[in-house]
Design a protein around this nucleic acid. Sequence first.
DNA 1: TTCAGGATGTACT
DNA 2: GTACATCCTGAAC
Length: 203
Amino acid sequence: MLAQSFFDGDTVDIARSLVGKYLVRRYGGVTLAARVTETEAYVGRLDKACHAYNYRKTERTKTLYAPPGTAYVYLIYGMHCCLNFVTEPEGEPAAVLIRGLSPRHNQDIIAENRFHCKWEDMTAYQKKNFLNGPGKVCAGMNISRALNGLPHGSRELSLCGSLEELGLPVPPGDREPLDIKTGKRVGIDYAQEAADFPWRFYL
DNA sequence: TTCAGGATGTACT
DNA sequence: GTACATCCTGAAC
């Protein structure tokens, strides 16, 4: 499991570093694992796209002030959840949004969560658009707002640096060097100059 | 393969 | 009342 100190630093650096790591979700006796393929950084101190911009503190944003590694889960557009991990020292509102995953363990259960069918019954279009968005990540990994505020190191939801750590086989591709691309964040046109910050990282 | 439109609830003004 | 860190469907190309 990634140490709490991993999250206690510069948010943009952490967002870049999280690409290629593994999200581990445990519930009801099952363990799901998936590789992080896409992230975005949000920094309240200076970022108009962040819910806690200019240190705004409300019932929703208070989770962003929690210790590093805390899960921040909120509802968007009335129907989808977005998963973030809080970064920087406690009291600094910042987080990394998990925007995309690639399944590594119990893919069939993730498919069931997403489309209520088995992996083999999914269409090519569904496979191509499996976990490539924050709402899809939460649907597939069975993440809801009930997990908001979950502390770092919780068994239900964690991040780790390798599949071997979990006793799982490592696909050959996962040993290759990472080719991390950088771009503008998605869906924040309202955020003026912050809309152009190159704070999105993806494989 | 791309696009427009609708679904839907909450936070905040 | 308005905007929102989105996703799915179906129609057009």
